[in-house]
Design a protein around this nucleic acid. Sequence first.
DNA 1: CGTTTAATTGAAAGCAGTCAAACTATGTGG
DNA 2: CCACATAGTTTGACTGCTTTCAATTAAACG
Lengths: 250, 250
Amino acid sequence: MTIGDSLALFLHDLQAHSPLSADDRQAILDLPMRLRRLDAGTYLVREGDVPTHCCILISGFAYRQKLTGQGSRQIIAVCIPGDAIDFQNMFLDISDHAVQTLTGTVVADIPRAALQALVLSRPAIGAAVMRSTLIEASIVREWVVNVGRRDARTRIAHILCEFAARLEARGLASEDSFELPMTQEQLADATSLTPVHVNRVLRGLEAEGLISRQRRNVRFADWRALQDVADFSRRYLHLPGEDELEVAAI
Amino acid sequence: MTIGDSLALFLHDLQAHSPLSADDRQAILDLPMRLRRLDAGTYLVREGDVPTHCCILISGFAYRQKLTGQGSRQIIAVCIPGDAIDFQNMFLDISDHAVQTLTGTVVADIPRAALQALVLSRPAIGAAVMRSTLIEASIVREWVVNVGRRDARTRIAHILCEFAARLEARGLASEDSFELPMTQEQLADATSLTPVHVNRVLRGLEAEGLISRQRRNVRFADWRALQDVADFSRRYLHLPGEDELEVAAI
DNA sequence: CGTTTAATTGAAAGCAGTCAAACTATGTGG
DNA sequence: CCACATAGTTTGACTGCTTTCAATTAAACG
């Protein structure tokens, strides 16, 4: 597999809102880069780290997490293939959270300085990275709402919808069926619930006929109905073409 | 008051991690800019807006918020004087959340395109804006943890500590006494609690002797003790000089 | 197969929510 | 200057969603 193939998802996503010139794309491909294959549960960044590399998730899944002083864990974001993991740390000197792989993954490491220079010297790339960073921030804001103001059933339904929508936008799943690469315990840490309650809610959603599950595969029986239950609107994902979709729906 | 005076806090904060050249500073001051005075409760941005201007908070306070389908509100961030409010929207076309003033404010409006051009054409400014954006994202991540995994007492103590630390870093308060420009209802929406419970917790903290209040003024009796209660560490604020402080504390 | 990890279920307890009302401050108009 | 209105704070009683604790079942793995 070439570097180009590895970065295809990432590049495609970067260009989602405005295309890069062939020149810009090539400059990204020319970055010094090293591919690594990692097991599930590997730390990509630890809280307090001084990052020297930025890494891009080529395949597999990861998540951002923080621990409280009392030892409970909060998952803050789930990274899917094509996500840049360390734009967060490209311009900040100490990592304020940890990133850990959820599954086996392949990541591309890029020296922080090289990426930083590229982003600052090429306006189109700078704009694309900026957008990508802001979208990630938007998703975290929605998570505050999800965790803060939605009840358990809505909350779980919402994270399922988000996951499905994001995967589908990357071409990694159909909209109504996907692999959820998380245990119920991890889902609990992402939704600020207990594993026990996550289980009850999932079974509830299943009993209602809204989803069906076999192992980690989740299928939405009625995407529209689940969205309603989830209080889900994809605006905050800033997916390309959203405007047209909304206009078309009128 | 000159534009330079108005932007002093903002500029100072931008340069917190690495200084801008006189040239860069002047370029910012030369931006087309309009000052507006606003009453408390005014919307600076509404969800779904297509922003044409970016605005910088010169004086007064504001907050970012989102509403759920059931009508409950979540405050996602509190903006303090010197904060840029619309870096979020500089590169995204539709606002995914609303921003509303908390108090009377003065804001500086800058046309989106002009600011965008400046950020992309001047690497030092680009880096500074990027850092500022990433720090804001870091704070939101901490809020997910706060709202998701801390009990009410810790949560309230934490938001008080954060507020004090941020104000103090801008020279807007001493570390142990500051004006909290929020009603208990707004505090409830920021901490995902009910106003009733916020009140009980505040009184509790007061009864414990950790804080004292007169109207909106909050005073920390023992900053260290409150930090412990709050599970607060300022790392996520990425304040300048933090490294040295930590080293010095060893 | 035995071992480990994850999912599932039940019963009991608790933190925070809900509902309702009283109190306080501040401001307004007569 | 006082009656009244409004917004915010405070308190009490009760409810309930989610947690906690504990135990069982199912699946993954060497």
